[in-house]
Nucleic acid binder design. Structure first.
Lengths: 203, 203
DNA sequence: TCATTCAGTAAACAACTGTTTGCTGACTCG
DNA sequence: CGAGTCAGCAAACAGTTGTTTACTGAATGA
């Protein structure tokens, strides 16, 4: 890639970073083009060399956010071991992810039901793909013998929803103490679901 | 109440209604004072006779939203009967509530993690109070014998989170078919949790 | 009845906003 | 080298914004 392209990419990155930073305390629908370019050290007109809209910038941020989340899910599904310790590790994985990608997670939580339709649609589509992935992994496990595809799918959705809810809860933790309380709650809830799963066919 | 006060209340209502209506397709942080007064048929300056801020208006909307949700929870907890049919009725209750209070539910979903801190805090506080209420009701049930207070509390949080997630899912339903699919998923998930609850102490 | 209160107004304020325009100057490539 | 590309800029556009000001006129209550 030439110097020209590299410089352009750098500016684009600056815009995305400035946007992500501003969105930590603000909604996408309340963000302004001038605000972003100012924070990125660029003139307002420059923005349009990279994005048509702020919505377009938002969609790119969604893709980046969910790419990182994707890694998290892959990691959690790849784990092996006893159910209890698997749960512990999953929750710790989520906590770590939130610590490292705080801005992305906050952005996702804020815009998942936010006022910008294309962004909302992008998030919903990606989360649905995650549920597919989790469903596939669950279906391959021995505990799912005798489960219908629909039931596996709803279990996957329950897990994804719970993961998102837990991540969002971690966001608002104001110290290690509350963080541990949230982790404890999440673990117990996962354990409850796991018990339900084990006795699913005894009804 | 005198004619004077009644007229003032009416204007206030008009502002709240206009705000709620505009917030169906928009974020609170993207809303403008002028926009609201225009929709309410009032001059911009009139707004300040009723609210200091748009955030203040938002907090009032939160209180109204959660007052209606409160009725829903009371209703669900008061239900009696077999677990399976109880679940069916609860999910139907949620679906009905979303149909009747669509704008309020959308507003809650949007601002729960939105960019306006006081509104976010108000929602979080009210949801925590709901969890308290649910926890109390659960603790009084015979199925909770031998459960620690902390475990009952986490179960209550799981139920509240799930209720909110289900309500939000209903919002995006684009027809009776998807609505029924969402209801089905919610029912199965609740059934799974209920199975887990029944076998909680067998671990 | 008549002074007082006060919800709502119109007008003005300075400070923004998104977007387009023509331009410049550094990179690209034949 | 020299023509062409194109990222970023300054300036201008016509609107919009939140908030304050002094005001009006209907409801109030002695």
């Amino acid at each position: 890639m030439g110097v020209r392209q590299a410089q352009k990419q750098q500016s684009r990155r600056a815009l995305l970073d400035a946007g992500l930073h501003l969105l930590e305390h603000q909604n996408l629908s309340g963000l302004g083009v001038r605000e972003v370019t100012r924070a990125a050290g660029m003139s307002p007109a420059g923005f349009y060399r990279h994005f048509r809209d702020l919505a377009e910038l938002g969609v790119v941020l969604v893709e980046e956010s969910l790419a990182s989340l994707h890694g998290l899910i892959r990691g959690a599904l790849a784990e092996q071991g006893e159910a209890a310790e698997l749960i512990d590790r999953t929750v710790e994985l989520i906590a770590g992810h939130v610590r490292e990608h705080r801005a992305y997670v906050r952005f996702l939580a804020r815009e998942r039901h936010g006022g910008v339709q294309p962004v909302r649609a992008a998030i919903a589509a990606e989360l649905a793909r995650f549920a597919d992935e989790v469903a596939e992994a669950l279906g391959a496990q021995s505990e799912s013998a005798g489960w219908s595809a629909a039931d596996v799918r709803m279990l996957a959705e329950l897990y994804v929803d719970h993961m998102v809810a837990t991540a969002v809860a971690f966001l608002d933790a104001d110290g290690p103490a509350t963080e541990e309380r949230i982790a404890g709650t999440a673990r117990t809830q996962l354990r409850l679901i796991s018990v339900g799963r084990r006795h699913w066919r005894d009804v």
